Amino acid sequence: MFAITASGIDPEDPLAGLAASDRPEPTVPDGWTTVTVRAASLNQHDLWSLRGVGLRSEQLPMVLGCDAAGVDEDGNAVIVHSVIPGSETVGQDETLDPKRSLLSEVYDGTFAERVAVPRRNLVPKPEGLSFEEAACLPTAWLTAYRMLFELAQAQPGAPVLVQGAGGGVASALIQLGGAAGYRVYATSREEHKRARALELGAYQVLESGERLPERVDVVFDSVGQATWAHSLRSLRQGGRIVTCGATSGDAPSAELRRVFFLQLSIVGCTMGRREQLENLAWMCTRAGIRPEIDRVLPLSEASAGFAAMERGELMGKVVFTV
């Protein structure tokens, strides 16, 4: 079967290890099944894999990709939840399993004609979502959903800040937050991304680092080093940062004096639970929310999507169709 793989690791030139090739059909352990992939979406995780973060050279070649929507062996339209438990987690939060992994870290990922996954990782795809839209949900949108509705602990109508408006998680936060009634401020270095953030439902947009008109209850930060100081300074007393990434590197200073004096909270988020993915899919359908898709490419042209992500020119998600 045709697949997009990591064939090499290069922290400085990640695209050098990207390959398109024929791969064996997936093996299916007990309790697993195969999904025929109709659409899969690109995440920063895939670029980090090519840089060697979470992926070792002895594991290569590895089929890349975390997110997919497709058809299971019984002909059902499904969305793939990409968190693979390393131990029995029934009734527990699989994202807290210390042995968990994402597809493409231990097991081959979704950038292929077929992918093997645990049966319990399949979520029904609502009829109102296309395969391309559904494929955007399992990583970036699920992370945003959990950040906003579980970890933020802010009332609808409250002011919140989304740093880095162009990314997949950020655009999801703007859309979901706006639909839920939050007063969403968003930042970006680029004018066209600020303009698009307004169209997606932001209350007000600002240049990166610009002082906000008011202090906010919650800051959602997936950027890290480049935005961390601004995130801390944008919070009211007792506010919190919910962080899910550090695409620009780790924060240069924790600024502990500010944290304890203003009684700030810092909460981390990695993905979300299977039932949250199912709830998210239905929320999008019922509320008429659709993921922001920057471009749709055939899987055979995946390298163009990777290159656009590395250049930072995206507004929303890149989706590959199979």
Rank of each mutant, 00 (worst) to 15 (best):
V219W: 12
S49I: 11
F220Q: 06
H81R: 07
E313A: 13
G268N: 14
L15S: 04
A172T: 09
S101A: 13
R100M: 15
R295V: 07
A197F: 09
L55Y: 00
E207W: 09
W32D: 07
L277Y: 00
R183I: 04
L15W: 02
I241P: 10
L198K: 13
L314M: 13
W141K: 00
R196F: 01
Y203S: 14
A165S: 13
V37I: 01
G312Q: 03
D221G: 06
L299V: 06
R189T: 10
E58K: 11
P26N: 10
S87C: 04
Q225L: 03
S188C: 03
P118W: 10
V78Q: 09
A254P: 12
F320G: 02
Q155C: 02
A186R: 09
I266W: 03
D294I: 03
M147P: 05
R119S: 12
A170P: 05
I289L: 15
T285V: 15
G177Y: 14
G167P: 10
A254C: 06
E133D: 10
E278D: 14
T110I: 11
V218E: 12
S265P: 07
A170D: 03
Q155A: 13
P156F: 08
S265M: 13
V218H: 12
G168C: 09
S231G: 10
D13T: 14
S82D: 08
D22V: 11
A16Y: 01
R146S: 08
F306Q: 03
Q155L: 07
R311S: 01
V218A: 13
M309Y: 02
A179F: 03
H192V: 08
S248E: 12
L176N: 06
Y107F: 13
A77K: 07
G128S: 05
Q163F: 00
A3D: 08
L212H: 12
P11W: 04
D13I: 04
A16F: 01
A302S: 01
L129V: 09
G249E: 07
A152H: 03
